[in-house]
Amino acid sequence: MAEIAIYLDADACPVKDETYRVAARYGLHVFVVANSFLNLPREPWIERVIVGDALDAADDWIAERAGPGAIVVTADVPLASRCVRAGATVLAPTGKPFTDASVGMALATRNLMQDLRESALVTGGPKPFSQRDRSAFLGALDQAVNRLRRAGGR
C-alpha cells in the first residue's frame, strides 16, 4: 500500500486543527485544499493547495488523487462518493465514515433535502457543529489511520 496522506476539503472544514494533531502524531502528510488562501501552521508536512475558484475545482483536485492509502475529510457528499469509489477512506467532519454501503443513501438524502429547500418546504441547514462531533472525528481519524497502517500503509 502507498504512503498514507490526508486530503482536507478545507474551505469550510471545522476540524483542521484536529487533523493536524493526528497527522503530527503519525507523521502523515496533509494536503489542505481550498479555493482561496488559508492561514496554516508552518510545518513541512502540511501542504497548502489553492485550486482557484472554478466550480468543483477543489473536489476535482482531491478526487483525482484519492485512492487506497488516502484519507479524505469532507462534508461534501458528491465528493465523498467519488472518493469512496476510488478506494479512499472518507470521513465527515463529524467522524461519520462514508462507505460503499452508506454513500448512496447519503447522496439520495442530500438530493432530497436540496429539492425540499429549493421548494421552500424545508429551510435551514444542518445542526450546529458540536464538541461531541469534534471528539467523534478525532476518534474516527485515529481509527482510520491505524486501520490503514495495519493494512500496510506508511
Results as ranks from 00 to 15, higher is better:
N146E: 14
A24Q: 14
A23I: 05
F129L: 08
S102T: 15
V72P: 02
G125S: 06
L79Y: 09
A66Q: 05
V103L: 04
V77H: 13
R25Q: 14
A70P: 05
D56N: 14
T99A: 06
V122C: 07
P93A: 09
M105K: 11
A136R: 08
A57V: 01
E64S: 13
I62K: 01
A140M: 07
P126S: 12
A75C: 11
P44D: 15
R110P: 03
T89A: 12
P14Q: 14
A63R: 02
D9N: 09
R48E: 15
S102N: 06
R42M: 10
V49A: 07
L38W: 01
R110D: 02
L141H: 01
M1Y: 10
I50C: 10
T74H: 05
V84H: 06
E18V: 04
I6T: 01
I6G: 00
L79Q: 11
A80Q: 14
A106Q: 13
T19K: 02
R21C: 03
A120D: 14
W45F: 15
R147D: 08
R48S: 14
F31P: 07
Q131D: 15
A106L: 13
L40Y: 06
I46N: 02
T94C: 08
R149L: 14
D100E: 11
R117D: 02
E118A: 15
S36F: 05
D60C: 07
A101H: 03
L141E: 02
I4H: 01
C13T: 07
L79G: 05
V22A: 02
M1H: 09
D60W: 01
C83G: 12
H29A: 08
F37R: 14
E43D: 15
S119F: 06
A92W: 00
P14Y: 12
L55R: 14
P78S: 12
W45V: 00
D115G: 10
A92C: 11
D76T: 11
T123F: 05
I4R: 00
I71D: 03
E118D: 13
L141S: 00
R85K: 15
E3G: 10
D142A: 08
G139C: 07
L112F: 11
A80T: 13
D133P: 08
A92P: 00
G152V: 12
V77N: 11
R82E: 12
Y20Q: 00
R132N: 12
A66C: 11
A12C: 15
I62A: 07
D76I: 08
F37S: 10
G104D: 08
F137P: 05
